[in-house]
């Protein structure tokens, strides 16, 4: 691990200097916050305090934090069902997120969306999508709109490896390419589409190879290396902002938990999960990097976890105290 940290420091030396200690610490704090949120979400589910299902992103925090931090204010986000991390990294209020997760009127979507459909239109977070490639054609529209309005915004659309095999992926990447739309297509490859391993669903090594078919640049990065994700998405966003069009970024990561709460995970071994947790955990790696680089102390690293848990405790308290939606209001919000 020490050796890995030194390698990473060397690789990202310019980036570490450019971002500075405060930003790097904030990114690590965000990763802790995501994990704390997800762990609490699972706990609340087990306690029977939420119903339905949820898709946890534990293990994938680096991709969310790296990508979100690479974007600028005013940019757009479209993401997918495993989206808690993206929202928190985008800057969403944990209270209103937790309230939405718990189906409360104070939630971002007034309890109508739930875990899978958190959106914050005011911050241009256009929402998480329960249809794996559903956001991709929408991103084309957002890109078109940006272009027609002649702003310098960029649209970040995050989807999983499974979405790359839906037809909408093809249509969207082609349209984005022919019209040079300011879109960053971020494929968050967590190795499994529910139970389907990428090795069985693709006959190519990297999903980013597909970009070539549309005349787009494609790049694959270590999705558990927050700085690698940051670097790749930054470059893609800058390219989009320069009017040079879209990029396909693939971030290879790993989900520790099942696809959803009903997943018994018979398609993979405990050893495989344990290997990723022990050797490639994104939080552990980034903490180690900052410690090795002398940017944080052991004590600071330990406090970050506690701070994250405290924020989530407060979010749960806020949510539990929040009112349920009024049944009398059930018809509202269908039509403008």
């Amino acid at each position: 691990m020490m050796q890995l940290s030194q390698d990473l420091i060397q690789r990202h030396q310019d980036l570490i200097e450019a971002l500075g200690a405060e930003t790097l610490k904030a990114m690590l704090q965000e990763m802790h916050l995501i994990r704390a949120f997800e762990e609490r979400a699972e706990q609340l589910y087990m306690q029977g305090k939420v119903h339905g299902t949820m898709h946890l992103s534990i293990g994938q925090e680096a991709t969310a934090v790296g990508a979100a931090n690479a974007m600028q204010e005013g940019d757009y986000l479209l993401n997918h069902h495993r989206g808690h991390g993206h929202c928190l990294a985008w800057g969403s209020d944990p209270n209103r997120m937790m309230a939405e997760f718990m189906g409360k009127e104070t939630g971002y979507c007034r309890g109508r969306g739930g875990s899978m459909h958190i959106a914050d239109i005011e911050s241009n977070n256009l929402g998480a999508n329960g249809i794996v490639a559903g956001g991709l054609p929408i991103a084309v529209g957002v890109g078109l709109s940006i272009k027609m309005r002649r702003t310098s915004q960029v649209c970040l659309v995050i989807f999983g490896d499974g979405a790359a095999n839906e037809g909408a992926f093809h249509e969207a990447l082609n349209m984005a390419s022919i019209w040079r739309l300011p879109i960053v297509f971020l494929c968050e490859n967590n190795q499994y589409a529910m139970s389907m391993p990428v090795q069985q669903a693709f006959n190519i090594e990297n999903i980013s190879q597909r970009a070539a078919a549309y005349g787009l640049p494609g790049v694959t990065v270590d999705g558990n290396d927050v700085l690698a994700v940051y670097a790749a998405v930054s470059e893609a966003a800058a390219r989009a902002r320069r009017g040079e069009g879209a990029t396909l970024v693939e971030a290879k990561t790993y989900r520790y938990k099942g696809h959803s709460k009903s997943d018994k995970q018979v398609y993979r071994s405990r050893e495989e999960v344990r290997f990723w947790q022990e050797n490639r955990d994104p939080i552990m790696r980034f903490s180690q990097l900052l410690l090795t680089a002398g940017l944080i102390s052991e004590a600071e690293a330990a406090q970050m976890r506690e701070r994250a848990v405290a924020i989530i405790d407060a979010a749960v308290a806020f949510s539990e105290a929040s009112p349920e939606p009024d049944v009398a209001d059930i018809m509202s919000g269908v039509y403008a």
Partner: peptide, 11 residues
């Protein structure tokens, strides 16, 4: 999808 995305962002 293009219609939806554009409509969501003011067009």
């Amino acid at each position: 999808g293009a219609c939806i995305g554009a409509a969501l962002t003011g067009m």
